[in-house]
C-alpha cells in the first residue's frame, strides 16, 4: 500500500509540475466565461442552451485531459527510462500501473467536480437573467456530470491499456480517440442493425457488428444529458446500470493493463 501511495502522489505531482492545473484553469475560465455569451444565440431556450453548452464543455475538456494524460502516462515513463530505475526496486508493477491510474482518475473526478460547480454558477446567473418555463433539475445535472466523469475514467483505463502496450505516443493517443468515437456510436449502430435495416445486411456482417458491440465500450450508457437539459424524469435503473457497467469494464481493462505491463520487457 505504501508503494501504491508513492506512485499515486508522484503521478499527481508530475501532472501538477507539467502546469496541467494552470492550463486546465485557463481553459475552464475561458470556456465558462464564453458560455453566457453563446447562450444568447437562443431567444427561446437560453437556460437549456446554457446547460447544453456547460455539459458539452465539461465533456470536451475531460476528453482532452483523459486522452493526453492517459495515453502518455506509462509510455512516457518508459521512454524517459524512469521505469527502468524505479522498477528495479522491490515494488510490483501492478502498484505502478494502479497508482498512475488512481492519480489521473482522481484528477479527472476533481476536474469534473470543479467544472460542475462552475456550471452551476453560470446556469444560475443565466436563469436569474432569463427565467425559463421549466426549473433546472439540479439533481439531474449532478447525475449527468457524474456519469460523464465515470465515462472518462473508463476511457482512461482503456488509454492506460494502450499506453502499457505501446512503444510510442501514437498508438495510445489515436487508439484511445478511435475507441472514444466508436464507443459513442456503438449503441446507435447496434440499434440500427437490430432494426428493420438489419434484415437487409448479411447474417455474418450482423454477427460481427454485434460481437464488436459487446467488446468495445458503450458510452451511451453514461449519456444522461437530455434529462439534465430538459429536466426530464430520471429513473434509478440507468444510473444503476451505468455504475455496474463502469465497475466491470474498468476492472477488466485494469487487469489487462497490469497483465500487459507485467509481460513487458523494459530493459
Amino acid at each position: 500500500m505504501g508503494n501504491f501511495h508513492c506512485f499515486y502522489s508522484l503521478t499527481v505531482k508530475a501532472l501538477i509540475r507539467d502546469r496541467l492545473v494552470h492550463i486546465f484553469s485557463l481553459v475552464v475560465a475561458t470556456v465558462f466565461l464564453l458560455i453566457p455569451v453563446f447562450s444568447m444565440f437562443s431567444m427561446r431556450q437560453v437556460q437549456e442552451l446554457s446547460i447544453t453548452l456547460c455539459l458539452s464543455a465539461i465533456s470536451f475538456i475531460l476528453l482532452i485531459f483523459t486522452i493526453l494524460s492517459g495515453a502518455s502516462s506509462v509510455w512516457r515513463d518508459v521512454e524517459k527510462r524512469y521505469t527502468a530505475s524505479i522498477l528495479g526496486l522491490p515494488v510490483s508493477r501492478a502498484e505502478f500501473v494502479l497508482g498512475k491510474f488512481s492519480a489521473i482518475a482522481v484528477l479527472i473526478v476533481a476536474s469534473a467536480i470543479i467544472m460542475g460547480f462552475v456550471s452551476c454558477l453560470v446556469i444560475t446567473l443565466i436563469t436569474l437573467r432569463y427565467p425559463a418555463d421549466i426549473p433546472v433539475n439540479w439533481l439531474n445535472l449532478f447525475v449527468a456530470v457524474s456519469a460523464d466523469a465515470l465515462k472518462y475514467v473508463m476511457l482512461l483505463s482503456i488509454a492506460l491499456l494502450f499506453s502499457t502496450m505501446s512503444t510510442s505516443f501514437f498508438l495510445p493517443f489515436f487508439a484511445s480517440i478511435s475507441v472514444y468515437f466508436a464507443g459513442n456510436a456503438s449503441q446507435e449502430v447496434f440499434d440500427y442493425v437490430a432494426g428493420e435495416y438489419g434484415t437487409t445486411i448479411p447474417f455474418l456482417s450482423r454477427m460481427i457488428i454485434k460481437c464488436v458491440y459487446y467488446v468495445i465500450p458503450n458510452f451511451a450508457v453514461f449519456n444522461m444529458k437530455v434529462q439534465a437539459i430538459y429536466a426530464l424524469p430520471l429513473t434509478p435503473a440507468p444510473i444503476f446500470y451505468a455504475i455496474l457497467y463502469f465497475i466491470c469494464y474498468t476492472g477488466i481493462m485494469l487487469c489487462l493493463s497490469v497483465w500487459s505491463f507485467n509481460r513487458r520487457e523494459l530493459v
Binding site: 437562443s42 427561446r44 431556450q45 437549456e48 442552451l49 447544453t52 449503441q187 447496434f190 440499434d191 437490430a194 458503450n218 451511451a220 450508457v221 437530455v226 434529462q227 437539459i229 430538459y230 426530464l232 435503473a237 440507468p238 446500470y241 455496474l244 457497467y245
Partner: peptide
Amino acid sequence: LTAFMKERPVAVKLGY
C-alpha cells in the same frame, strides 16, 4: 443491459 438499452425510453426532444 443490452435489453435495457434496446427498450430505453427515447427522449423525444429536438431542442435548439
